[in-house]
């Protein structure tokens, strides 16, 4: 998962939707836990501005 920081609004949409709780939002920082990720791609779809690319 890659976050384009020039697009990200730090809104938390991906954080709350991730089924594995693999994404964490600090104030203006998205922290991603690769070990928990199941590559479902839902974070890419839920991002309102299209800032996430699931790999």
């Amino acid at each position: 998962m890659k976050v384009d920081k020039t697009k990200c609004m730090y809104c938390g949409s991906c954080v709350g939707t991730c089924p594995k709780n693999a994404i964490f939002l600090e104030e203006t920082n998205i922290v991603f836990n690769r070990e928990l990720c199941i590559e479902c791609g839902v974070c890419e779809k839920v991002c309102p501005v299209g800032a996430i690319t699931a790999e």
Binding site: E44, K45, V46, C47, P48, V49, G50, I52, T53
Partner: peptide, 8 residues
Amino acid sequence: IKERGDVK
């Protein structure tokens, strides 16, 4: 939602 950025 079909693809990335659909909402926008």
